[in-house]
């Protein structure tokens, strides 16, 4: 392994989109999108529903093509969906190894499950897992493939707040250990700020804002950044309220 290259030197991007356009009939969902994701970079993509997030993810996951433009994504990619999408008729460990061949499948599955703290449920049926457990299993299924790109499609949106915080820590830990490039799609600004190196805001099929966050994790919330991103998403937060609140807290 090379020594970590200090920012802002830009290594060869692992994901690269140039002029990516996707139309469904006459409806242009994404228009001329440019996006680079560097090796090992953690990018969060914020957007309201209908902003084209899902379309972009489906293309990056290889489930959908491009109408125009150039899309370069490595084949070594894995997805974690909002709903875990485990096959209910296969025990958890077989879900982890779905489509993989080779020796010691069971042992590899157990290793991946241990990383997400779920090794004791290797033989469980997926429908007996809690929401958080199912998402851990989905993470293990993605990571056991050692992907160059990990695509996370609102993976924590359906979880309760406490579980979500635990999952954030888990994802960061796994990311540090395996160093895939991550694209996290979310509509949760706090989640994006807590996890990502770079936050993009997608609106109307275009990237309308980009914020780099260089501070160390765990991060204290930067109200100004939050307000900027919210404004880009079309949610105006009145500044005075926050000032009053800050004074009251003193």
């Amino acid at each position: 392994m090379n020594a970590p290259i200090p920012f802002p030197t830009r290594p060869q991007p692992v994901v690269s989109l140039r002029g990516f356009t996707r139309r469904f009939g006459s409806n242009t969902v994404i228009a001329g999108l440019d996006l680079d994701i560097a090796e090992g970079e953690f990018v969060a993509l914020l957007g309201r529903s209908g902003s084209g997030k899902t379309t972009l993810l489906r293309t990056l996951a290889g489930l959908d093509g491009a109408s125009e433009g150039e899309v370069r994504v490595p084949n070594s990619r894995a997805v974690v969906f909002q709903d875990a999408r485990l096959l209910p008729w296969k025990p958890v460990w077989q879900n982890i190894m779905l489509g993989l061949t080779g020796r010691d499948l069971r042992a590899r599955a157990e290793g991946a499950l241990a990383e997400v703290g779920l090794d004791h449920r290797a033989d469980a049926w997926p429908l007996t897992l809690s929401g958080g457990e199912a998402q851990r299993a989905a993470l293990a299924r993605a990571l056991v493939r050692e992907p160059k790109v990990l695509l996370l499609d609102e993976p924590f949106a359906a979880l309760d707040a406490l579980t979500r915080i635990q999952m954030h820590e888990l994802v960061l830990g796994l990311w540090r250990r395996h160093r895939p490039a991550v694209l996290l799609i979310t509509h949760d600004i706090d989640e994006a700020i807590a996890l990502a190196d770079r936050v993009l805001v997608l609106d109307g099929g275009r990237i309308v804002a980009e914020e780099r966050i260089a501070s160390d994790r765990p991060r204290t919330l930067d109200p100004a950044l939050r307000r900027r991103l919210l404004a880009r998403l079309g949610v105006a937060t009145p500044e005075p309220v926050e000032t009053v609140w800050a004074e009251a807290a003193d």
Binding site: A61, G62, L63, N75, A78, V79, F81, D83, R85, L87, L98, G99, R141, R145
Partner: peptide, 15 residues
């Protein structure tokens, strides 16, 4: 959604 997930993990049509 399950079919889509399986395709995303690179399973062939037969698989």
């Amino acid at each position: 959604r399950l079919v889509e997930a399986a395709r995303a993990f690179g399973l062939s049509r037969a698989a």
